[in-house]
């Protein structure tokens, strides 16, 4: 862990990894989308609509992984006070918010042919929506301070509080959903996954996670540059 704590060493490694990871992302997306859209069977109930799943489900997974990354980075920032942990937590937040947004939009697109309406308060969609709210709160908090350090530390505490709360929120939403579930609604987790569907799903999941990695490196790099610029300007002003 501490071997990468030196920004110079981290960026040297990250710059080597970046092109490889970017290539892997492109290959995974191309193959995942090909299998998902053209070379996998339609669902016997949903027909071709099920193909939205290959975009929707991995996005929701990636969004949750992103929150976990954010909370872990926040915790290590609070413990070791290392700037890279702070930058990683900050970098993860908008990426995760983007993934939740993709999951919400594709969920809505998926819901339209299935339910005949653009939005249904399905348990999973609702949980993803609340995850989106948590991301919004984090991003707003981190950027609400003039001192970037202060924002990062407050954000780290909030990410941890959110991580502790997420299972409770998820449980309560599932509970709420079973209370209010109209019998006729087709659940999104309904169709069991055929093996031909599993391959594109896993390829797409891999693609999302690789994309997450690429964007993390890019964002950490630009956040670090911004922080360093601020330092140098302050240092120049106090010469």
């Amino acid at each position: 862990m501490h071997r990468f704590a030196n920004p110079t060493r981290f960026f040297r490694l990250a710059n080597t990894v970046l092109p490889v990871l970017a290539a892997v992302t492109a290959v995974l997306f191309a193959s995942g989308l090909y299998y998902g859209l053209f070379d996998s069977p339609p669902d016997y109930q949903q027909g071709d609509t099920v193909r939205i799943m290959y975009v929707h489900v991995p996005a929701a997974w990636a969004a949750m992984a992103c929150y976990a990354t954010m909370a872990l980075a926040g915790a290590s920032f609070l413990i070791w006070k290392h700037i890279l942990a702070d930058l990683a937590a900050r970098a993860a937040a908008p990426i995760g918010a983007g993934f939740t947004l993709i999951a919400l939009v594709t969920g809505s697109l998926w819901g339209q042919p299935m339910w005949g309406t653009w939005w249904v308060w399905d348990a999973r969609l609702t949980s993803v929506l609340i995850l989106f709210f948590l991301y919004l709160g984090y991003i707003a908090l981190v950027n609400a301070f003039d001192d970037p350090d202060r924002g990062g530390r407050a954000g780290a505490v909030l990410a941890l509080v959110g991580a502790v709360n997420l299972p409770i929120i998820k449980f309560s939403v599932d509970w709420w959903n079973t209370l209010h579930q109209p019998a006729s609604v087709l659940r999104m987790d309904g169709p069991s996954i055929a093996p031909e569907m599993l391959l594109p799903l896993l390829l797409m999941a891999g693609a999302y996670f690789a994309l997450f990695g690429v964007m993390m490196i890019l964002r950490i790099r630009s956040l670090y540059a911004g922080r360093r610029l601020r330092q140098l300007r302050l240092a120049a002003a106090s010469e």
Partner: peptide
């Protein structure tokens, strides 16, 4: 040194 101060304050 201002330069090293920048690094130390950052890291």
């Amino acid at each position: 040194h201002a330069e090293s101060a920048v690094d130390e304050a950052l890291v």
